[in-house]
């Protein structure tokens, strides 16, 4: 299955990746190969197989509704590039 140039550009945009022309070209080829490899799965007859969302046989991992300590505000904010009055400061959104 061949991915188009435009599709790769679109995926890059969704992932907020800045790609050069050359990178788009090489990723188009590489991603197409990956998809082709995965397409082998289409050969399996999965008519009676339930979709699997998890490889572990686990279910219902819950916790009690008990309050635990949060981190101090200072620590929460320490990785923020810009901080203002106890908040993370982010650039104009629109």
């Amino acid at each position: 299955m061949d991915l188009s140039y435009a599709e790769v550009r679109y995926i890059a945009k969704l992932a907020r990746l800045e790609l050069s022309e050359k990178e788009v070209e090489s990723y188009t080829a590489q991603l197409s190969t990956v998809l082709e490899y995965m397409q082998q799965l289409d050969e399996l007859n999965l008519k009676d197989v339930e979709p699997l969302t998890h490889v572990f046989q686990m279910q219902n991992v819950f916790r009690e509704d008990k309050v635990a300590m949060s981190l101090p505000q200072k620590q929460i904010l320490q990785n923020g590039p810009e901080v203002q009055s106890g908040h993370f400061k982010v650039p104009q959104i629109l």
Partner: peptide
């Protein structure tokens, strides 16, 4: 609920910003 959906942080409203975060 007393705590958030996926962690034990309190859900009390009106608390100082970024103090119920983990």
């Amino acid at each position: 609920t007393n705590t958030k959906l996926f962690c034990g942080c309190s859900t009390v409203f009106g608390i100082e910003a970024n103090t119920q975060v983990c």
